[in-house]
Design a protein around this nucleic acid. Structure first.
Lengths: 330, 330
DNA sequence: TATGACGTTTTGAACGATCAAGGGGGCGAG
DNA sequence: CTCGCCCCCTTGATCGTTCAAAACGTCATA
């Protein structure tokens, strides 16, 4: 059993004081070159690694960021956050941070979770996902001066806090333009009910692309997310006069429901989904793919900037472009 | 900005010493009832929460456990681990632990990750997933006396370390018996190549159920995991004389590939997958569902038992039964 | 020769908790 | 009355690190 190697062990070996070892690590420029080398050699020989706990105690910085993981809902949308989490963890590691995950049932429970996490573990920052209008979490964190970045923009007040988001309107616009380019003229849209920032944004992209091409925007259904809902919505659109020859969907769940309906008519209706979830390649569904790893990396960068004192000024925002992934369905 | 409230703040307010407050928290039985109440009141009034960092420094226990998250492979199998992680986090929270996630590219990189995590963050334990024969991670952790529990049994030496697993053979046996009960006699199997513990185990269940019913076990294909592979395997089985009327698959990926092929013949071939991934409900695939939340809870229990000194004796093992989820396909 | 400044290194204290040992009051036994 | 014991509580030291300030040697300047 190897003895625990502390900064004092290193100091003895390099024949310097504790503080000099600390300086070699944290402010190398104040240490003479030769001493620095001797200390580094000792660190290497002994396999020394600074104890985060002790460091945290003195500095108050834990180098830990928290991310929430959702209770796997229908499993389709959930995978988006999982991929995001993976990107987050990877980037955080290379920035010297670690990711702690937590769960929370509702918004108030989530605030209770913050309370515990900040007080007991001295978390440095949070990455929020799925922010809503006037999100209570945002207020709480802002009031306590806890650093955070949201994945999802602040819909009501864009400058309220730093965020990273994917341009949903651009994604649906790409999808719509692709359908137009391949000859479709009657292009429908199946989206979520009005009021969700994300849903309205995605709808706006379809709307804009249709108007740009001077096409009719009447073929539209707004329904709650779900596979059954998607199927029903497309059926309704097909029952009308002059039915669409293609539909853009607000999510893969909706698109997945629409797909069998679309393939049941001749010629098949083209379908494009949103999020490029794992089901999409499995069933040959074209879909708009969010750059989740990139978004996660941006979140970490922003958060690290906040924590390391850089970019103290105005909240920063990043808007990323999604890409259209084409498969059989569109 | 509220002052930071430490054990000393509480002590002053309750007019006792630091140690008494500590005792109220950690060994309440040594404190007089009335004093205890006064201290608890003070803790409540001030909203005091013990600093994990300081506690860790003294006790060496971080109350942090680590779990690896995979680089989202095909996204289908990945979701199993994601659901497991969610269960892990939830149970850990109620047991007073937190989950730190990390990534690692290969097995050697993973050991480097352990090194860093144990040394810098004093992690209390690990939950391993996807253990293999003679896993180097197991040896490393055992050599360092780091507590860990594996999700996935120790195939070569069952008593090597504590594990929790799902009885794959029981799952495929359930699936096979269900097919037999619904009238099928020529039941095929599409599985992974020999040599993987999980794959061989699942195959054994089909084999046993078929032999119990004195049915022919000749209709079998062993191929790498994948959607295309599943489709090809079923096609090959159907091309033979006396083709199967139903197939049990070793994974949802294989089943998902087999499904369109199965539905393309008349009458359709019944297909049952394994893992009940999010795609399964989406496409109406029957599948064997692993109790992932339960498995995660068992892992935490075992690990907590190890860490809290209980059950020091022999490694414990838990084998859980999966359940068959029936949908259109079988 | 003393003084100040500079570059580098060392020393003491602190972060917030727990451990180990010490202390005082009450009470029964010698 | 004194001793010992038990119960309950307090005091000092400690975990490993960084902060703040002091100390050291060297050198230029007055």
């Amino acid at each position: 059993m190897p003895q625990k190697v502390t900064i004092a062990t290193v100091a003895r070996r390099a024949r310097v004081s504790r503080q000099t070892v600390s300086n070699v690590i944290n402010s190398p420029q104040v240490v003479r070159e030769e001493t620095r080398r001797r200390v580094l050699q000792a660190i290497d020989d002994l396999g020394y690694r600074a104890s985060q706990a002790a460091r945290l105690m003195r500095t108050g910085r834990s180098r830990l960021i928290a991310a929430r993981i959702e209770p796997t809902r229908d499993g389709i949308t959930g995978s988006v956050l999982d991929r995001f989490l993976h990107g987050l963890t990877e980037t955080a590691e290379s920035a010297g941070y670690r990711v702690l995950v937590y769960t929370a049932a509702g918004a108030d429970r989530e605030i209770a979770a913050y309370e515990a996490l900040v007080a007991s573990y001295d978390l440095d920052g949070f990455v929020l996902t799925g922010t809503k209008h006037a999100d209570p979490r945002v207020s709480w964190l802002a009031a306590r001066d806890v650093a955070f970045v949201a994945f999802g923009r602040a819909w009501d007040q864009p400058d309220r806090h730093p965020w990273v988001d994917v341009d949903g309107a651009d994604g649906t616009a790409q999808a719509t333009r692709h359908l137009i380019d391949t000859g479709h003229r009657r292009i429908g849209y199946v989206g979520w009910p009005e009021g969700s920032g994300v849903g309205d944004d995605r709808r706006a992209g379809w709307l804009a692309a249709m108007r740009d091409a001077a096409l009719d925007t009447g073929r539209e259904r707004r329904v709650p997310d779900g596979i059954g809902e998607g199927a029903a919505a497309l059926r309704a659109l097909l029952d009308a006069a002059d039915p669409p020859t293609a539909v853009v969907c607000c999510s893969d769940s909706l698109a997945l429901g629409a797909l069998p309906v679309a393939r049941g008519v001749d010629p098949p209706v083209a379908v494009i989904g949103f999020d490029d979830t794992p089901v999409a390649p499995a069933v040959g569904l074209s879909s708009v793919s969010q750059p989740l790893a990139g978004a996660a990396a941006c979140c970490v960068d922003l958060l690290a900037g906040l924590l390391d004192g850089r970019s103290q000024q105005a909240p920063s925002h990043v808007l990323l472009r999604p890409t259209l992934v084409l498969r059989h369905s569109g």
